[in-house]
Write a protein that binds this DNA or RNA. Structure first.
Lengths: 169, 169
DNA sequence: TCGAACTATTTCAAGCTTAAAGTAATATCC
DNA sequence: GGATATTACTTTAAGCTTGAAATAGTTCGA
């Protein structure tokens, strides 16, 4: 793990080519992770305290709010980047709460269309409004141009990750 | 939700002051989240496929690798930003695997010190080495200065979030 | 020193999450 | 048309995660 004991430890060390050392990328990943975890735990806590719901349920409803005609389970699973079985359980619970509606999909007896009930839509919109304020205040100390740069670099990181994962490029 | 129907929809719209609209911050949050999720799921998959372990176990061992004398459960819980009960279960499983060791803490009969066994240390170091390569290749398309900027802006976002959450500043 | 407040950890119930295996319906190919 | 593959979804077992309540030990003030 520590194969550079003979190298100088001053400021220049950072830019010396050290094959096999990727500590900077590791630190970047850990910071991305801790930033996300910090924000997400707070959002989870607030959703529970103020709306007695969970983040996965909120996220699922957010997808459905954008799809007036409803969505198939598989589409939800793709958009939320979670497994099919996961969606099945989430939808079950939201239907039991009266916030969602299952109906057979036209032209495909395997599939079903899930959509928000009127109550579900009302409930979601009220939460979404407050949620948006939470997020805004969390990023409040970043100037508009910093937000833009962050947005762009995260996009690039995502693209880089996707290529690395799929083996492209 | 849509109270700006009378405003122009051209490029200038972005910079007009619209009280109550925070869609950009929302998009930033969603991108941060999807970037993190994409990378994390891949790391989880690889840890399982190649080392038959999980991310929480890996993270816990990473903390212990930096603490030669061991760590108390509460300290682990703080550093990993998870609940106490969570740590109890994780440590149980890692002890059962022979990778961790529990021992009573000196001067406090409530607490215990957890440390890596020699096998645990060997196992972790082998994984950490490969893990570091995975992370490096995931961020490979970002230039050094882009990584630096991203690091800095994430730090600032984290600070902003922390202040917003604790009610400071 | 006694009791109250605090701290470290465990236990519990509920929900989230996944991979793998199973069921049912659709699509494709000959 | 009928075998085969694919697709949509559900089920299951195992592990992760949390908040709340319980247990045990420590600290601190009167």
């Amino acid at each position: 793990m520590d194969d550079m004991s003979e190298l100088p430890l001053d400021a220049e060390t950072k830019v010396i080519e050290r094959p096999g050392d990727h500590k900077d990328e590791l630190r970047l990943w850990l910071r991305l992770l801790s930033c996300q975890t910090l924000i997400e735990s707070e959002i989870r806590r607030r959703l529970r305290d103020r709306f007695d719901t969970t983040l996965p349920r909120f996220d699922l409803m957010a997808q459905l709010d954008k799809a007036p005609v409803g969505m198939k389970l598989g589409e939800l699973s793709q958009r939320l980047m979670v497994s099919n079985g996961n969606i099945t359980g989430l939808v079950d619970r939201l239907v039991a709460q009266g916030l969602l509606d299952r109906q057979p999909a036209p032209n495909d007896r395997r599939a079903q269309l899930v959509k928000l009930t009127p109550e579900g839509r009302r409930t979601f919109r009220a939460m979404a409004c407050v949620h948006e304020e939470w997020i805004a205040s969390i990023f409040a100390e970043l100037a508009a141009d910093e937000q833009e740069t962050l947005m762009r670099l995260l996009g690039k990181a995502k693209e880089s990750a996707r290529k690395s994962i799929t083996g492209d490029g």
